[in-house]
Amino acid sequence: MHAIVTVIGHDRVGIIAGICVALANINVNVLDISQTILGGMFTMIMLVDIKEASVPFDRIAAALDEVGERLGVNIRIQREDIFNAMHRV
């Protein structure tokens, strides 16, 4: 099952590293990453596979919240289905 992780916040060292470590710890596989600086803001979208995750969805979200708080960025995880439903016929 795929999910989209979106990250927005002030750029700093270690954002991608911090998030990837947190995801690796709960066996979430990163499939794709696109990252830019938009108007001075760090903006990243990750496609991840949560099928083999070692914890349920709400714990994945909680783990990301914790990293986000530590790094001072906003992280959100949503199932890919919601975006596909809206934008793909």
Binding site: T6, S34, T43, I45, F83, H87
Partner: peptide, 10 residues
């Protein structure tokens, strides 16, 4: 993959 504009629009 979905693009950035679509994801942020939703």
């Amino acid at each position: 993959m979905l693009n950035q504009r679509e994801i942020f629009e939703t």
